[in-house]
Design a protein around this nucleic acid. Structure first.
Lengths: 192, 192
DNA sequence: CAAGAGGTATACAGATCAGTATACCTGCGA
DNA sequence: TCGCAGGTATACTGATCTGTATACCTCTTG
């Protein structure tokens, strides 16, 4: 279930394929990007792509898993860098601020869920799991901060986080607004 | 800018096309559904489809505009049915609860923005406009309820609303959680 | 009754889709 | 030195994509 390092190491060509897929899928959408374009963009033969991944579905899953891996490590770094248990609860919002300064096309996982409604699609599972992990992380952090009813707070913070990342492309200042409100909620829950 | 009734009335065939498009686009995604399928599903010739709409892009825009129209009228009804100005501010969350009991594939507009990154796509504009309208509605309602700093409250409610609708397909209870928190925020802002 | 709007039926063009077939090259480790 | 894993190059299949061409039908309305 964890998006850890137990994944098989990628061959050089596979690495380039995943990198190209990340750019193209995120920027233009998954269904809109064909395997020919990915192969061309990564300087790799389509034959190699299919030798490594077997299908487009699996390339999509690899793209999402790779992004999830990078995103989780960014979130963990933000949590570790926070000065207190209370501060740690809203650390994902700090990570989000940095993250959205680079990626302005919203959340790759929400976007993927929008495009891949079929739960049997391997990419669907990766995206859904990323969301459940964040929801669970908020609960762990809330518990560690000594918050009563950590489940309630966690769901609220999760909703705020997802609302922020989903509406970020609209440039309405939602990321900052969500972070501010999140801090207020945590302060009230811990100290109140 | 308003999604009002100034739109030209649809011919019977066009009506069926938009209805079929709504079902298919929402359920399976926009890029994944072809015009042939829409024509077949609506019992209409592809020729007619192109005579009425000219392109798939325009069918997409019509689908989103129609959905926007229906959704706005549901929200307005909820606002009108609320007992007080304070209650009216969170009325969209009540409408959302009813709405998501029918539609469990998330927000058609967020999904559309995920699939249509190009702002020149006519559907992109319709979807983005729907979001701005809601954000503006929250601000109007907050102002009417006598809330100081209505802009801040409006953005917060907007983020909550979008987070709820975006994560609703995950079945994590986010719609209820967002509605509860929204009521608390409004109460605190108006009475506090 | 004539004309046009709305629609049907069918066939097609040209591009792109995911995925496969065949044949060859290169470096490395047993 | 032999074999194989990883990769290249190119051509192909059959389906599906958006959009068009041609021809005909059936109301309604002036």
């Amino acid at each position: 279930m964890d998006s850890g390092s137990d994944a098989p190491p990628l061959t050089p060509a596979a690495r380039r394929i995943v990198d190209a897929a990340e750019e193209l899928f995120y920027e233009h959408g998954i269904t809109a990007v064909g395997v020919d374009l990915i192969a061309e963009h990564s300087g790799v033969t389509k034959r190699t792509l299919y030798n490594r991944f077997g299908s487009k579905e699996n390339v999509v899953a690899a793209y999402l898993a790779e992004r999830d891996r990078r995103w989780r490590s960014a979130v963990r770094a933000a949590v570790d860098a926070s000065g207190s248990a209370e501060e740690a609860v809203t650390a994902p919002f700090e990570a989000l601020r940095t993250w959205t300064s680079t990626y302005t096309r919203g959340c790759a996982f929400l976007n993927a869920l929008a495009e891949l409604p079929d739960p049997r699609h391997p990419g669907h599972h990766v995206a859904a799991e990323q969301k459940r992990w964040l929801r669970g992380l908020f609960e762990k952090l809330a518990t560690a901060a000594g918050c009563p009813e950590p489940a309630t707070l966690a769901t609220r913070l999760f909703v705020l986080h997802e609302g922020a990342v989903a509406t970020e492309p609209l440039s309405l200042g939602t990321v900052t607004a969500a972070a501010d409100l999140a801090r207020e909620l945590v302060r009230a829950a811990v100290r109140g």
